[in-house]
Simulated scan of single mutants.
Amino acid sequence: MTLPKSLLLVAAVTGLLLLIPLIAMQYTAEVNWTFSDFVFAAVVLFGAGATFVFIARMGNNGTYRLAAAIGVLAGLLLVWANAAVGLVGSSHNPANMLYAAVLFVALGGAIAARFRPLGTSNAMFAAALTYLVVTGIALFVWKPTGNAAEPSAPFLNVLVANVVFAGVWALAGLLFRRAAEPVSGPQVAQ
């Protein structure tokens, strides 16, 4: 599929996904998106889809494309969760801004590696490590207030959720590492 057609498909899927909250708003008061919510979601969803399209085109096998999909999904989930509820405390907690470093490490490392599988693998592992370091710093700095804006979430819940998110980055790293391995055919006994 050509690049323009791929991006058009990403735009169409983004539009279809945005119909879900738009339709839900007609039937329930629980979903109450503003115009800026739709703009934010459109930018994030289209940006993630376009990023996947560009990165996946640089690989030559299914493992590379799967690794790219998981890496982009990890970035999408990081941005979405951080904007929606916050990864540490509420979404208004300034410690959550530290997680931008994870995206910079992942994308910056992949760009520096020219998206070659081994270098991109290292970037994903570095992003996972950065994620854990940022979580440690944020948890050290974060002091839950217990009020409605900043509920007192159990420390273990926050820690486990963040370790799982870091694991998604590590999984992308493992898959990129696997994509770097040469493909060998079946061994013939002699």
Rank of each mutant, 00 (worst) to 15 (best):
P151Q: 02
L18P: 03
A189V: 15
F125C: 06
F38V: 11
F155P: 07
N61R: 09
A189Y: 13
S184D: 14
L156Y: 09
A149G: 09
L66M: 15
A67V: 08
A56M: 12
P117V: 04
V164S: 03
L156D: 09
V168N: 01
W80I: 15
L175F: 02
S121E: 07
S152A: 15
L78N: 01
N147E: 13
L174S: 04
V188L: 15
L107D: 06
P21Q: 02
A83K: 13
P144R: 03
A166P: 00
E181C: 08
N157R: 14
I20H: 02
V13F: 11
G47D: 04
M58P: 10
A161T: 15
I137S: 11
A41L: 05
R178N: 08
F155L: 07
V53K: 09
I70N: 13
G146R: 04
A67I: 14
M25K: 01
A84N: 15
P151D: 02
L175D: 03
L103I: 15
L18H: 00
M25V: 04
R65Y: 10
K5P: 04
A170F: 00
V183Y: 07
L156Q: 10
V13H: 06
V39D: 06
A81C: 11
R57K: 13
S6Y: 03
A48M: 09
K143C: 08
A69K: 10
V105D: 08
Q187K: 05
A112Y: 08
V134W: 01
L132Q: 09
N147Q: 07
E150D: 15
E150P: 01
S184Q: 14
W80V: 15
G71W: 12
L9F: 14
T130W: 05
S91Y: 15
P94L: 12
L9G: 12
T51C: 13
R57W: 10
V164R: 06
S121R: 00
V134Y: 04
L78H: 04
H92F: 14
G173A: 05
T51V: 13
N60L: 10
G59Y: 08
A161V: 10
T14A: 06
F176C: 00
L66R: 13
V85T: 14
L16A: 06
T28I: 03
V72I: 09
A56L: 10
G119D: 01
M124I: 05
Y99R: 02
T63R: 12
V72M: 01
P21A: 02
F125T: 05
Q190M: 12
P21H: 04
R116V: 00
T2Y: 05
G47K: 02
A69D: 11
A128V: 03
L175P: 01
A153W: 09
V53P: 12
A180P: 05
W169R: 01
Q187L: 09
V164P: 07
F176H: 00
S6F: 02
A166W: 01
K143G: 07
S36D: 11
A166K: 02
L156I: 11
R178Q: 12
W169G: 00
Q187S: 12
V164L: 12
A11Q: 04
P182I: 01
F46K: 06
H92R: 13
A95I: 14
A172T: 04
M97Y: 14
Y99W: 13
W80T: 13
N93H: 15
Y27T: 12
L22C: 06
I55V: 15
V44N: 06
N157G: 10
F125I: 11
L16T: 05
Y131P: 04
A106Y: 08
L3Y: 09
V163E: 07
